[in-house]
């Protein structure tokens, strides 16, 4: 079984936020308003955070999404298993089972889980903009980056239809796809031939907050020499 992972080279990343927009559209994450944003209700599955990654110089803007922990602190605490580590190693959300207790949001040390404070709304005709592959979350449930899991399902269908095995290149999340600086690669971290595992071997590689024992599958490559 593949162990899907994402490697982000902070030395290449230009903090352009194309990934942020791509994810919003791909995953039907609703827009905010200034009021929502000012009260801490802006929803985004991926965002820039400023993290000190070097010994000098300003903090590095770092794209942050669910780190898809192999030992996720968020799933342990869920009373209904509405969030769980699935067989593919992706930490998934079952929206229909989530009771909205927000225990997982508080247990995630990366603060990447989001809560639907109200029913998401798109003004007409913007409803047509929504991706039919991804369900629209009702109010009251928790959501987060899924590694574009629907793309994996599509890629697998495609590979099966073509009668071949799933290759690394078949499955590319929306954020990785758009990255203009080619700062992200996605693939099987256990496959020694994948680009992702090669990048993850870099001496610059670090897993953010791995000291907490979360074993993230998002790997960052440190900025600088």
């Amino acid at each position: 079984m593949a162990r899907w992972g994402l490697v982000i080279d902070l030395d290449r990343c230009t903090a352009c936020q194309a990934c942020v927009v791509a994810c919003k559209h791909e995953n039907n994450v609703p827009f905010s308003t200034p009021a929502a944003s000012n009260s801490g209700r802006l929803l985004t599955w991926i965002q820039l955070v400023a993290v000190e990654t070097r010994s000098h110089g300003p903090a590095t803007p770092m794209p942050l999404m669910c780190q898809q922990c192999d030992r996720p602190p968020c799933t342990d605490v869920c009373p209904t298993s509405a969030t769980y580590l699935n067989a593919e190693g992706i930490v998934a959300q079952i929206y229909a089972r989530c009771i909205g207790c927000r225990y997982c949001t508080n247990a995630c040390p990366y603060s990447v889980k989001l809560f639907n404070w109200q029913t998401p709304a798109w003004p007409e005709p913007m409803t047509a903009l929504r991706n039919p592959d991804v369900s629209v979350r009702p109010k009251g449930v928790v959501e987060k980056c899924t590694f574009c899991h629907h793309r994996l399902m599509r890629a697998r269908e495609q590979a099966r239809a073509e009668g071949r095995d799933l290759a690394n290149e078949d499955y590319v999340p929306a954020c990785v796809q758009t990255c203009p600086a080619e700062a992200m690669v996605f693939g099987d971290l256990d496959d020694p031939h994948s680009e992702a595992s090669a990048w993850a071997e870099s001496p610059r590689a670090f897993r953010w907050m791995e000291e907490l024992g979360t074993r993230p599958k998002v790997v960052y490559l440190r900025e600088g020499e």
Partner: peptide
């Protein structure tokens, strides 16, 4: 690839 404006 597309930038943020291109995506939006």
């Amino acid at each position: 690839r597309l930038c943020a404006k291109g995506q939006a």
